[in-house]
Design a protein around this nucleic acid. Structure first.
Lengths: 333, 333
DNA sequence: TTGTATGCGTTATCAG
DNA sequence: CTGATAACGCATACAA
């Protein structure tokens, strides 16, 4: 591989001139600029970015910490993040933690050892996260819940959930089952609070047995739905905390001959692509995943570059999308 | 940020000793090892990996070039790749090209400028790809088709497709529509060849009107299905070249009152998670995405480190999974 | 405008 | 076993 001195020698100038020709061409005479240009072409010189980054003590790279990249919501987010990163001259280092703290720490270490300049955090488990994250490393929390600290991009999970449940109530549903994420998942907590608020405002008592626990996978949604079906008083609607679990639930309901939405309404959360195309298309909450990815990147770069943040937290709007999986409670019209 | 000399000063040793204490502790006396250990802890020293990489002229990073990370097959592959990379001390740089050649080139440049050591290529468009890829940069083609050059991990698209179509034929189907990817997509070409072979061996003439073109999205599958339904002689089965398009197709078929599989059979390709949970679960080909991701990483590291490759190409087995979306041709039993 | 000299943090070499 | 030194490739302060 040729370096800047090879080019300089060939062009008959100093290495400094070659460097300037590339970074500050206005400071170099036209004549030498041409010489340098030719020499660069002749040897096929490519500046060594690693050396340059090293000199600037900057990696121009960010880590994105994600529990599972195969989750469609996350992959959409990351796609937008990467897009923005590329625009800004940054590289995205993929950190799929699978929820394992050691892996998270491994990636935090990458920042501490200067292989990346900051972290975008999609990990919702804020307790662990905040324990592991040293306060001095640039970090944006992009899966924020109500009680995150530091720069954050988030949605209002609570009021979104409330909107969904309000809608179900308006359709006459009084017994609404919940398929939750893991109980200590911040999203699950916020969304459950929305559910409770909606119930309270409608004067419906909260029944904790109606809340089943899943882990955001289709399989867990299926299992949770089985439990809900076997209850003494079977709910007439299911509020699932994400689309995957709702899809899993719908499959088993249909297998059992329960019609959707005639016998039971089902709602999701996220609006992943499959929700629109699933056989009974899913009523759900759409999150602005791409907008969130872009904003997270913008925000992180601001933090990295030491620019002041005009806002510490951005709460983005969600959209409630009504499709075929919801209808009037049985017996209502 | 503290550096190696700060530690050395504090420990009362030379920088070289600190370096050795970290990299070759067996070459350092126990006494000084302890001193160094304490000093490191005291100042919270983290070795600057960028400086170390710079010195070794290695990035310990690889680029993964993918047309669309939100595609579940790709994200599974990448998850496994990242897993293996982490095991081997490498970082994965995410390169979502969205099929745009300029973006691909941008990432190739990252390797040329020493920000990464090599590339795993998931881009199936081998023509463009090979035009852009300089011969001297380590690269593994992981979405290989029959005519890729260089190190490759792939499946036998042709024979997998043939298996599917053979099965449909065995069910009595004689008029089998195809939802293809873009006509010049290597996967689409290989799979279409499999389709043709199966037909030929069964003595069924190939009808080119039965081949509709999609772009591997659900939406395009839906549109293609509409075309197939409107044909003079409507096919009794649809061979879709991926699951997404099959899911899109199934939705519109059901909307039109066409029963699956009684009136029409549908098959997919990839076996993404949703195929199992979609309302009529999908008969499809399962690709070993995770195995492919791991092997691609192993292979790339071998190339990077200059180890000889025992095999230039690995063809991994696929599995044919029969679910509910296929059945006997109408009129057959 | 241009060239020279220096340093970024690390590690291998070599002499002690 | 240890320390001083040079080198990796680049960009800047400074001198000319």
């Amino acid at each position: 591989m040729s370096n800047i001195r090879d080019v300089a020698r060939l062009a008959g100038v100093s290495a400094a001139t070659v460097s300037r020709a590339l970074s500050h061409p206005e400071k170099v005479s036209y004549e030498r600029l041409e010489k340098v240009r030719k020499a660069i072409a002749q040897v096929g010189y490519r500046p060594n970015m690693m050396a340059r980054n090293f000199r600037f003590a900057r990696a121009y790279a960010v880590v994105v910490l994600v529990p599972d990249i195969s989750n469609p919501f996350y992959s959409l987010f990351i796609r937008a993040l990467e897009d923005r990163a590329q625009q800004k001259g940054y590289t995205v280092l993929l950190g799929d933690t699978r929820g394992i703290p050691e892996r998270e720490i491994e990636y935090i270490r990458r920042v501490e050892s200067h292989l990346a300049d900051g972290i975008v955090q999609l990990r919702p488990d804020s307790k662990t996260t905040q324990n592991n994250m040293p306060p001095d490393i640039p970090c944006v929390n992009a899966c924020g819940c109500e009680y995150t600290v530091g720069p954050a991009i988030r949605i209002d999970n609570r009021s979104a959930a409330k909107t969904v449940v309000n809608y179900l109530i308006s359709l006459g549903h009084k017994c609404i089952g919940v398929i939750s994420g893991l109980k200590d998942n911040p999203h699950a907590i916020d969304r459950l609070n929305g559910y409770k608020e909606a119930l309270a405002e409608a004067g419906i008592p909260f029944e904790k047995d109606l809340v089943t626990e899943g882990d955001f996978t289709m399989w867990s949604g299926l299992n949770a739905a089985v439990k809900l079906c076997n209850m003494k008083v079977r709910p007439t609607a299911i509020f699932s905390m994400n689309d995957e679990m709702a899809i899993g639930a719908m499959q088993i309901l249909k297998n059992k001959g329960i019609r959707i939405p005639e016998d039971m309404s089902v709602t999701g959360f996220d609006d992943i692509a499959y929700s629109k195309y699933s056989d009974t298309s899913l009523t759900t909450i759409s999150q602005p995943a791409e907008e969130m990815g872009k904003m997270a990147m913008d925000m992180l770069v601001q933090v990295i570059e030491g620019e002041p943040l005009s806002q510490l937290e951005y709460v983005l709007p969600t959209e409630f999308i009504i499709r075929e999986s919801t209808g009037p409670a049985p017996g209502k019209k």
